[in-house]
């Protein structure tokens, strides 16, 4: 993936690297100090990758700047080469930075809530997936419908339902519906219906 840069558009005679006054030893970084390292330098040395905004259906291009050492995203901004948004972003697109691991409120653990309980318990993936699989099988086997009222073969399950999701990638949408249909589900729906 080659990201060609054309940040400054046609403005020639740009100031170039460094600031005239910085040679005088004056700190021209914003008055609100944010880091020991100057942000612009961190961003310039970051790994760039392109993504598409996860919100509405316009499909704007965004560049993520990833710190090559720490591995986290340190900046996100519009992709100037993208023909739809040409670098621009709305409020949501501009806030993409806060959706990644930078957001301290992201869910980080598998959580389980037992019947009648008033709290979450942290669990492992192995435990949770095994337990969910058991419940799927139990419910499916108990309520499986081989034939309908007319005696026609239907091989379906109405006691389990699935919704979601328009936030998944295509490569996830397909297997999720395939898996649910292979289980026999017919209540398979998502946001497009609402």
């Amino acid at each position: 993936m080659n990201v060609t840069r054309r940040e400054f558009l046609a403005i020639s005679g740009a100031v170039g690297a460094g600031l005239a006054l910085s040679s005088l030893g004056i700190d021209l970084g914003p008055a609100k100090a944010y880091a020991d390292e100057v942000r612009i330098d961190k961003v310039k040395s970051a790994k760039q990758s392109t993504t598409i905004c996860p919100y509405c259906g316009v499909g704007c291009g965004i560049i993520c700047y990833t710190d090559t050492k720490a591995g986290n995203i340190i900046n996100t901004e519009g992709d100037p080469d993208h023909p739809i948004n040409e670098g621009s972003l709305c409020a949501k697109g501009s806030a993409l930075y806060q959706i990644s691991s930078n957001n301290p409120d992201r869910l980080k653990k598998v959580l389980y809530r037992a019947p009648g309980s008033d709290k979450w318990e942290e669990k492992s993936w192995d435990w949770a997936l095994a337990e969910i699989a058991k419940r799927v099988k139990k419910t499916r086997d108990q309520y499986f419908i081989e034939k309908n009222g007319k005696g026609q073969e239907v091989n379906r399950v109405e006691a389990i339902a699935h919704i979601g999701s328009a936030a998944l990638d295509n490569e996830e949408c397909w297997p999720v519906q395939a898996m649910m249909r292979a289980l026999g589900l017919v209540y398979v729906e998502h946001q497009a219906r609402i």
Binding site: L96, S101, L107, K108, L111, Y112, R113, A128, R135, D169
Partner: peptide, 19 residues
């Protein structure tokens, strides 16, 4: 019973979306 499974955000995986 509720199982809450934490998943990856869009920038944490690879794939396609269609606008």
């Amino acid at each position: 019973e509720v199982f809450m499974l934490p998943c990856a955000a869009s920038v944490e995986k690879e794939g396609s979306i269609i606008n």
